[in-house]
Simulated scan of single mutants.
Amino acid sequence: MAAIQVVRSEWTKIRSVASTVWTLSLAVVVTLALGMLISALSRNEFDTMSAKDQVSFDPTFISFAGMSLGQLAMIVFGVLVVSNEYSTGMIRTSLAAVPQRGTFLFSKIAVATGLSLAVGLVTSFLAFFLGQAMLGSHRASIGDTGVLRAVLGGGLYMALIAMFSMGVAAMLRSPMLSLGILMPFFFLISNILGNVSATKKIGRFLPDQAGSRILRVVTPLDDTPYGPWGGLGIMALWVLAALAGGYVLLKRRDA
């Protein structure tokens, strides 16, 4: 089957499965709602902040507060896109129709990545503008130094989260096992490792900790050895490793 036909087939699969559509919708809603709430609370509390906190206040990063939960919906989307066919047994039919396993996997990932990037960019821009509206006089402008980079980076960050989840799901094949590992990792383990002094230097190189650096305009006063794009590059390396692992295992084992 020609690659373009495989891509069309994967697009039909993704948009015909209600769960994938709902998870993308949830990523948008949760990110926007929480971002607006945190932005409104930050506006009300700004005058009571210490002088140090006021100086380091990052209105752009505040508007992205909802991405901490929105990324979980992106994880679910990435896992379901790849592992749904394993859980239903359709993977055998799909591989019989497309025996070139690399074409099959990367067509699926390409379609899902394009969709998650589009949703991520729309979400990121909406989160920024709605968040700044909530911040009132403390808001930033899209033309301020570093702001457009952070907003575009937000869309890239969400797409990379989905891609990393696709790679892990391709390796593990099971949606329950994939979610059982990814959810605690991103929601708990990564935050703990990134905030405990003994493990901080390790935690900062985890995919979400490194990638989220792109969302910041005001740089924290720490000794992190990379900048916004460097952090996103580290995250991209994690994604490449996960996708490579999924490809190798798909090639080597039975459906």
Rank of each mutant, 00 (worst) to 15 (best):
G120D: 06
Y226G: 02
T20A: 09
I109E: 03
L206C: 07
L172K: 05
K200W: 06
R43A: 14
L240Q: 06
G155T: 03
A118M: 04
G114T: 04
L32C: 08
A236H: 04
L41E: 13
G89Y: 00
T60A: 15
K108M: 00
V217N: 07
R213P: 07
G78R: 03
W22P: 12
I234G: 14
V6N: 11
Q5S: 13
F104V: 03
L80N: 00
L193M: 07
P99H: 00
R8Y: 08
H138P: 08
V98A: 01
G246D: 03
S9C: 06
L37Q: 12
T224W: 01
V122N: 11
A242N: 01
M176R: 09
N44R: 14
L182R: 03
P228F: 01
A118Y: 02
T31I: 05
I62H: 12
N84P: 08
V79R: 08
I142C: 06
P59K: 05
F104E: 12
I181L: 15
P184D: 03
D53K: 11
L126A: 15
Q209H: 10
L249I: 11
L215E: 11
V119K: 06
L179F: 00
G89D: 01
W11S: 13
G230M: 00
K108I: 01
A110N: 09
G154Q: 06
G167C: 02
S174F: 00
A33E: 09
R15Q: 15
G146M: 00
T23G: 12
T23M: 15
R253P: 11
R92A: 10
P207T: 07
A3G: 07
F205T: 09
V98R: 05
A110M: 09
Q132G: 07
S190P: 04
L126M: 13
